[in-house]
């Protein structure tokens, strides 16, 4: 985590100075391109860091990730950042499916720090998100919107609670809501391509002109699979190793 002054400097009684006020992220500074310094967490991907203001996931801010209902790429996007935050808890609020302990252990995630909270009802979800975001013990909250859609006011509540915390707060929502207005500081879409993950940032606080150019993140080699036999020679590449592959004799499809 990079150290930059926080949004709300401690002011015990005395009125804040102009410099302190200018350090706040929520003060409009006209056409000045000087982005206020923020606390960020390294994303683990150089290409992504380059495009994010502050060069990392913004801390104490609500981020919104939109993806198609049947598509999942959450861990690919966030695992490097989660590994950077090694102290607090990582909370999964309302995950769509159970996380697989074996895969998380392989990725190096400490299961003692991983907590799962199920809140299917919208009011429970909101209360739990606010409670978790305000807790000092949480380094990351990954939340999946419940079946009932969240209104702007409810999203605003989540965003305000996020500013009180000190972790990264990611809300996963369906792709259909990307055209709706949202108070999230950072909004992006995720989509799988044949051998990469395409990220499209369509809203970022502090960025005056939105760069529509997508970012491509590589996927693990093992996921690329085996090439068809006839392409092995033409590509001139060695056959990728799949560690788990065990040949079976006499196997019939």
């Amino acid at each position: 985590m990079k150290l930059v002054p926080p949004d709300h400097p401690a002011s015990a009684g005395s009125p804040p100075s102009l410099e302190q006020l200018l350090c706040r992220g929520d003060i409009w500074r006209g056409r000045s391109h000087q982005a206020p310094p923020r606390l960020v967490v390294d994303t683990g991907y150089a290409a992504l860091n380059e495009r994010l203001t502050g060069s990392g996931w913004p801390v104490a801010s609500l981020m919104e990730v939109c993806q198609k209902s049947a598509c999942h790429s959450e861990w690919q996007l966030l695992v490097p950042a989660l590994l950077h935050t090694q102290r607090g808890l990582v909370v999964l609020l309302n995950p769509p499916i159970s996380p697989f302990a074996q895969a998380l252990l392989q990725a190096g995630i400490d299961l003692e720090r991983l907590l799962i909270v199920e809140a299917k009802d919208k009011s429970d979800f909101l209360a739990s998100f606010i409670e978790l975001a305000r807790s000092d013990a949480c380094d990351a909250v990954m939340a999946w919107q419940p079946t009932q859609a969240l209104s702007y006011t409810e999203l605003r509540k989540c965003a305000l609670a996020s500013t009180e915390g000190q972790g990264i707060y990611v809300l996963f929502r369906p792709d259909a809501v990307r055209d709706q207005s949202s108070p999230a500081v950072l909004r992006l879409t995720l989509e799988w391509e044949s051998e990469q993950l395409r990220i499209n940032i369509f809203k970022q606080k502090g960025e005056l002109t939105v760069n529509r150019q997508p970012i491509h993140l590589p996927i693990p080699n093992a996921w690329k699979g085996l090439l068809p036999h006839n392409e092995l020679d033409s590509q001139g590449k060695p056959k990728p190793k799949i560690a788990s592959v065990t040949p079976i004799r006499g196997w019939r499809r």
Partner: peptide
């Protein structure tokens, strides 16, 4: 959290259906 060596290099998905 002790993963046996047989599972350490195997490909495992992050989400597991119940």
């Amino acid at each position: 959290q002790e993963l046996p060596s047989i599972h350490q290099s195997a490909q495992r998905p992050q989400w597991l259906l119940d």
